[in-house]
């Protein structure tokens, strides 16, 4: 793998790491498997891209994306809590609805961001070389979001979210409306996913309705790899591990795609197979380790 490819993988790992924080929040903390993310990632990208091409400041467009993602999460969570639709199904419904909505927002399946200012231009203007702009911006955002989520989970509301995922009966009997907590948590999660999508779109210079496919799989893969490699003993550690897991996941994929064995090479279309193998590997490693030690 070239240094250039490694740099790109780390960049990707950091920006999708923001998405993985969102996935960790729903999947692990709230115990709410949420597939909305496959729709809210491109939702964030579409909103941001349309806002920028209409002349809005690229940073403000991120806030809009965040709000849009939050709203999508709220829809899923309301369907689940207020109308008793199974969480998986509720999130799939929101996800497919978002496919149409994203095309509506962009007035087409994609939108290019050529010749307009993005969050990266502001950084290059400060003298950061263009090839490192992505790393700087994504790194800064990932650290900021990490700091925020770790702070937030330590607040009274954050603790209520933790308890809602852990023991809803207990936290209700302590006076917390678990419906409101789930709506807030799933909203926040999708807000972060949309933010991640908006940053990706600004980086690659386009938003595309198909860019969200497989988001949840990548998210879960990163969560599991992070837990296996870096551990999750405390809340802060678990979130940091999720972001690092995302970086490791992207690096592993870049490695696999660059692999040459005689005449054999992986195609980009083998990505799903590679992901599946990575996740299986991460899932069975702790088990294998235990058995080897026991011997």
């Amino acid at each position: 793998m070239t240094l250039y490819a490694a740099l790109g993988a780390v960049e990707q790992g950091l920006v999708y790491g923001i998405m993985v924080i969102g996935v960790y929040l729903t999947f692990r903390i709230l115990d709410f498997p949420d597939l909305t993310v496959d729709g809210s990632l491109p939702l964030g990208a579409s909103i941001s891209a349309v806002a920028i091409t209409s002349g809005l400041n690229p940073y403000l467009s991120l806030l809009l994306a965040l709000a849009g993602g939050f709203a999508a999460g709220v829809v899923t969570a309301v369907l689940n809590t207020k109308f008793k639709i199974l969480h998986l199904l509720a999130s799939i419904l929101t996800m497919i609805a978002l496919y149409s909505i994203n095309i509506r927002i962009m007035a087409g399946p994609n939108i290019a961001l050529l010749g307009v200012d993005t969050v990266f231009d502001a950084v290059t203007r400060f003298g950061v070389p263009a090839q490192y702009a992505g790393l700087v911006v994504f790194g800064a955002f990932a650290v900021f979001v990490l700091g925020f989520i770790i702070w937030f989970m330590g607040t009274e509301i954050g603790q209520a979210i933790l308890a809602t995922g852990d023991n809803p009966q207990m936290i209700r009997s302590l006076g917390v409306n678990t419906h409101v907590v789930i709506i807030l948590g799933v909203g926040l999660s999708n807000g972060l996913v949309a933010l991640s999508g908006a940053l990706v779109a600004q980086n690659q210079g386009a938003a595309d309705v198909g860019m969200g496919i497989g988001t949840i799989v990548a998210g879960l893969a990163s969560v599991i790899i992070g837990e296996t490699v870096f551990g999750c003993q405390t809340m802060a550690r678990a979130f940091i591990a999720a972001v690092l897991g995302s970086v490791v996941y992207r690096l592993a994929i870049a490695l696999a795609l660059g692999l040459e064995l005689g005449h054999f090479r992986f195609n980009p279309s083998d990505l799903n197979l590679i992901t599946a193998i990575l996740v299986i590997g991460a899932l069975i490693t702790p088990n294998l380790k235990k058995r080897l030690i026991a011997r």
């Binding site: 330590g154 509301i157 603790q159 933790l162 308890a163 207990m170 006076g175």
Partner: peptide, 29 residues
Amino acid sequence: LGTCPSATIEQNMALASLRGQRRGLARGV
């Protein structure tokens, strides 16, 4: 059923010490 396994003892007590009160952005513990 009465406690939260993945939270610490002090976190559990803090959750209970807010029973029936509004929860905000102050530190949990």
